[in-house]
Each structure stands twice: as C-alpha cells, then as structure tokens.
Amino acid sequence: MKALVAIKRVVDYNIQVRVKADGSDVDIEGVKMGVNPFDENAIEEAIRLKEKGIVSEIVAVTIGSAANQDILRHALAMGADRAMLVETQETLHSLGVAKVLKAVVEREQPTLILLGKQAIDDDAGQTGQMLAALLKLPQATYASQITIEGSQATVVREIDGGTETLAISLPAVITADLRLNEPRYVKLPNLMMARKKPLENVPLDSLNVSLTHNVQQLNVATPPARPAGVMVKDVNELLSKLRTHEGIIA
C-alpha cells in the first residue's frame, strides 16, 4: 500500500522565538528550521511499515515556498521514496492546508495518510482531523501504536488519563504522537542518496483548490512574565513562605 506523509517546516523546538518590535508577527528571520517533531514520527512510522513489507511506497508532501525543499530532502534521506512540494507563498491555516492535502490525496490515492498530531509553531492540532473530515475517512489521532492487518488499522491513542484503542478501516488518516516511535538519525550518505530521489514541485494553482482566508492574525505579544520569585535556604523556610499563602497548605 501507498503511504502519504504530510509534513511541516517549523522553527526548531529548542529555539525561543521573539516577537517583532511592531507586534505584527514573530521574528523568525535566520532562525534554524526543521521538520515538525511529530511529523518526523509520522515519517518514521511509514518507513517502519515499509520495512515490515506493509507499505510499498512512501510519498512525503509539504506546502509552502521553495525553502521547504530542505525538509522534503530530510524525509527522503530518512527513507521516503519521493517527495512533493505544493508551492505557494500564501499563508494557510489548518483548514486551507487540509483542503490542499485533500487534492493531493485525490491525486496520489494513498491507503494510509500520516501526519504529526500538531505543529509546534501554531499549536493548532487540527489538520489531520480536518483532512479526514474532508475525505470522509476514519481518523485516529495521537497514535502511540499502529498495527496494520489487511485493510484494517488498530491504533492505540493517547487520551486524557490513559489510552484508547480504535480499529479503523483503510484508507484512513492517522496522526502521530511522540511516543509512536523514535525517529532515526539521518546520516550524510543518506542525504547524498536523497538528492537522487524524485522531488516534484506542484504549483498550488494547478491543484484547483478553492481557498478562503477567513482567519487573520491581528497581532502577537510576549506573555507577561511571572514576577520574580525568591530563593529559600531550606525546607523550613519554604514551608514558612508557603504558609503565608492563605489555605495553600495545611
């Protein structure tokens, strides 16, 4: 079966982003970028399913400017077979991304559609569910374990307080949680080989997707910092400080 993995280029998770002086947006000029961590789990899972002989072909896709080719090369170096950049300069929110991915799915006809559960830049966590809705396919979000037998996937999902197991029929959309797997490191020879793998540029216009831009970001701000605390010298001083707060400890 064919697996489609949708990935996003985001600011590296170790970097604390700053707000532009005019508050119009965050300043990510020259900041280190990479594959969204949850999307890397999605790529890794597709590769493991291919290694088990369940998946036969892995297509990685992203949406954005030509700069996004670097994360597609990363996916190819990890083990994806080919990549597709839906090229646009437009800023898309989750619904727009899901509509574009729907067009890609209709073109590629994958049996398994994998995404990360959330992007660590906008923290929306919507795209997988929206894509499943638009395609009228089953969804399994926050997957920590995926087992595929025939045309059915059994997915263990992380929910509040524990886990839930769903059986869904394929094709389906599954979103990856961090504990699904540990993504492999990419070695230099893999990166060299990845250059020979096909990377297709598809202009967004050619997909004939009707997009609206109904969500506007008006401004961004840095949240107020917690007021500076105090250091205490021992447990007794800590307790006496805590007792100054009404009712917080007995």
Binding site: N214, V215, V220, T222
Partner: peptide, 20 residues
C-alpha cells in the same frame, strides 16, 4: 470573533480573528 491564544508553546500570545 476575536481571540487570544498561545503559539510557540505559549511563548507568544497571538490575537486572531475569524470572519467565518
């Protein structure tokens, strides 16, 4: 139709408006 929400792990507060 206007909301404040956290982005970038809550390090930034974004004010967003939806005309839907």
């Amino acid at each position: 139709n206007t909301y404040v929400r956290g982005i970038y792990a809550g390090n930034v507060l974004a004010t967003v408006q939806s005309s839907d």
